[in-house]
Each structure stands twice: as structure tokens, then as C-alpha cells.
């Protein structure tokens, strides 16, 4: 239902991952089926751009602006925010690119499932939700990494939002306990999720 062009860019992959999250929600899945046409999205912060082409049954995500298209702004904070527009396809895209966040536990479970056992990834991942004072532990052993944050922040980061896991740590979206080697592996795991893993 959600397809990307060959050799996609990071933005194309990330938009496709977001759209796939949307089509798991029944009313948003219906919205895809009701939409025909294309919208070109241009980042407000850098030179990235992409085009979503709807055909009533699915969406093709490709890089760049469609020839002659009037691009619509795309902001990354929160990810993704489509600029004001009267165009019905762009308005549909706006809804589809901001699906509801999963519960942080669900996001964490998927994050763990995608990367557990890969080289460098911690053997035990501990997620600490600050407002719930709750802890979720995956795996076992002494090779442990902890990620602390509020539920929505954990959900956003672990479901692949934000360009780089390093930024999530650097900007204080989440805090972590572990080694530099773990941080590197977590960055790789985050991209795996962000780009559709």
C-alpha cells in the first residue's frame, strides 16, 4: 500500500515509515483509499523534498518536487507537520503524516525486536518512563543500556522520529546510561526503525 521509489532518500524512507504507521489506523487507511493526486513537500529547515502520489489504493513516495508543483511546507518538529494549505491532497497528507504516537511500551518492543542480537546492540535494554515511574526491560545480562524519558518522548524516539538518536540525547529529549559503543549501536538501531525496519 505504501511504496517507495528505487534508491530512496532518507526523507522518502522516513515518510514511508510514517505513512505505514498511519495505514494501521482504520480511518487513516480509509483516507488513503479516498485520495487521488500528488503533493510535493519541501522541508522548511533544509533542502530535502519529496512527493507523495496517491492513486486511491496506495501511496508512492519519491524524492524531489513534482514538475511544476507548488510545494507545501514540511516541518520536522513535531515530525511531521505539513504547512497550511487548501489543497485536499495536501490536507490528506497532513493527517497521514502525523499519525497517533504508539504507546511507549509498544514502540520499545518494536525497537527491541528489530535490533536485538545485532552486533553492538545491548543485551539488555531498560526503558524508564519518568511520569509513570515505570520500567520496561528487554533481554537480560550485564550488557545493559538505559533510556529514560517521558512517555511521549520515548514513543517518538523509539518509533523512529527525529533524524538521529544522537540529537535525541543531545537535545535532552531522552537521557541515557551506557557506553559510547552502545550509543553508536542505538543510533544504528534508531535508523533501522526510522527507515522502515
Amino acid at each position: 500500500m505504501i511504496a517507495t521509489e528505487a534508491d530512496p532518500t532518507p526523507l522518502v524512507l522516513s515518510l514511508a515509515r510514517t505513512l505505514r504507521a498511519s495505514v494501521r489506523v482504520p480511518e487513516l487507511r480509509d483516507l488513503v483509499a479516498q485520495t487521488n493526486g500528488s503533493v510535493s513537500l519541501k522541508s522548511v529547515t533544509d533542502a530535502q523534498s519529496a512527493t507523495l502520489t496517491f492513486d486511491g489504493s496506495g501511496v508512492l513516495v519519491s524524492h524531489g518536487l513534482a514538475f511544476g508543483a507548488e510545494p507545501v511546507d514540511l516541518a520536522f518538529d513535531p515530525e511531521y507537520t505539513v504547512g497550511e494549505t487548501a489543497d485536499p491532497v495536501a490536507r490528506a497528507a497532513a493527517k497521514l503524516l502525523s499519525p497517533p504516537l504508539p504507546d511507549w511500551r509498544v514502540a520499545g518492543a518494536h525497537f527491541w525486536e528489530v535490533s536485538q542480537g545485532t552486533p553492538g546492540f545491548p543485551g539488555r535494554l531498560v526503558l524508564v518512563c519518568l511520569e509513570e515511574e515505570a520500567e520496561l526491560v528487554f533481554g537480560e545480562g550485564d550488557d545493559v543500556y538505559e533510556v529514560h524519558g517521558y512517555g511521549p518522548a520515548l514513543a517518538a524516539v523509539l518509533s523512529g522520529q527525529i533524524d538521529h538518536f544522537l540529537y535525541a540525547v543531545g537535545f535532552g529529549v531522552v537521557s541515557v546510561v551506557g557506553s559510547g559503543a552502545h550509543l553508536s549501536a542505538m543510533c544504528g538501531a534508531h535508523w533501522k526503525v526510522r527507515f522502515g525496519g
Partner: peptide, 14 residues
Amino acid sequence: PILGVAFPSWRGEL
């Protein structure tokens, strides 16, 4: 910093 890779044994905290 280039991250996202499994650190070989010679890489650590700088």
C-alpha cells in the same frame, strides 16, 4: 561523529 556502527574493540570512550 560517525555513529550507527558496532564499535570494534579499539573504539571506546575516545
